[in-house]
Design a protein around this nucleic acid. Sequence first.
DNA 1: CGTAGCCTTGACCGCCCTCAAATTATGTGG
DNA 2: CCACATAATTTGAGGGCGGTCAAGGCTACG
Lengths: 251, 251
Amino acid sequence: MIDTLMRTMDEFRRIGPVASNELRGHCLDGLRFFEPRAPIFSSNSYPDGAYWVLAGIACRHTHLREGKRPVSGILLPGDVFGLRSLLSQRHDHDVSTLAAVQAVFFSKDTLCRWSEQLPQLIDALWRIRLRQSHLEEHWIVNVGPGNAIGRVARILWELYVRLHAVGLAHSDCCATSMTQVDLADMVALTPVHLNRTLARLSQTGIATFRHNMLIVHNFTALTHTAGVGSESLDGSLASCRDSSAGTCRVL
Amino acid sequence: MIDTLMRTMDEFRRIGPVASNELRGHCLDGLRFFEPRAPIFSSNSYPDGAYWVLAGIACRHTHLREGKRPVSGILLPGDVFGLRSLLSQRHDHDVSTLAAVQAVFFSKDTLCRWSEQLPQLIDALWRIRLRQSHLEEHWIVNVGPGNAIGRVARILWELYVRLHAVGLAHSDCCATSMTQVDLADMVALTPVHLNRTLARLSQTGIATFRHNMLIVHNFTALTHTAGVGSESLDGSLASCRDSSAGTCRVL
DNA sequence: CGTAGCCTTGACCGCCCTCAAATTATGTGG
DNA sequence: CCACATAATTTGAGGGCGGTCAAGGCTACG
């Protein structure tokens, strides 16, 4: 598991054997476990470190009055969170698990030390974070305009592609660990209307979502329904990789 | 003008006199001008550098079929753009001016050189970029759920606060250089309904938007209408500052 | 004075929300 | 394994918010 993620990280930034060993060693010390449906970070608390997800599924969200709980991102194995909050000195949103999560904790001290001694590691983490930043922008573009079916298709598309990328999908089927209420929060629809929209996607033979399980019957149609942006999103998912073999540190 | 921005940058990251002079010198060489309503970056092109806005107003946006043009961020003096695209090797959205813009161009070579010799400068630029990242997340939280009046209030609130912060507002009045169509794209409403919503805000004595000019009559009510998130947004705007006086480079 | 862009207003309609209830999973203790 | 409680999904009916189409007014500029 760790090996797979290390290879993925290496695509973002070649970190070399020394840093690789340091990181691998830290994965043993800093490993933490979280129950399903448990909070990891809460808003307005003060961060003391960052996490690297090894297994499980989590999400970024906030709590609004009236019970609204908009979700602003999905965290899968290989993703990093808590990094940005270290700079801004405060969490501006919550992070909670959906499925049970294993994550490696990097304390602020550890990160500061690496920043001096193994800056390529910090660079790699930032590049991983950067990819999420791209996804967030697509989230703005897709959750704002567009009708219900387009937004839902967009989310299912992202789930399918990303879960596949980290090996959490088998053929056209993936376990999302999400309820329809979770999905509703992600696309800013009511659970009732989300359910109707899912029914439409199912009736048209595009995708089915039942019991936390997503089955994509027609990926081409799903991509098309999700609308423009999917191609570029595809690029975003693959991007941030360090094709220049890392001559620049922070760039 | 440059002095003011240099001071602001210094709050994000103390960069010292050497870097300060280097940056100031570069502001003369790399200065570029853009007409109002002109493109600066276009999607799917390949980036060769980043910009630091000295004067004017621009925005990030994309082009969707059906003429939709969702806006994902506003760029004001002091803001940085094009930085993230350098890492991902491709622009995933457009940047266009609203008002005429003066911006300093940093070529990829320059940034790479600084990355080696004056890393605190790169760090400062990233911290500035980071603040925008916070705003983007609030954009997701606010453009998604919530009704028209809340979304519009949210945008007017951000405009008012940010324009004030960079001295582009006089008392309760600011020139936004935006049409109602621009605003409509920012909140994902049709121009028609945006107009009605603005009328409501005007009738209730909260704010008026006419002829590119925003006048806030009741800031407290505007903040309240914009809803929760404004307080934390306030924090985001002020955050990312380097209160620890910069012992860590990238952190 | 005329044209073009922007703003404003009206009428109509459909998407999505709200409220409510029925039905089906999931889990827990007996 | 069953009875029960709780959570999640499904379906229905009705209404409001915001979209769409269209026409008219305002402003700027040549």
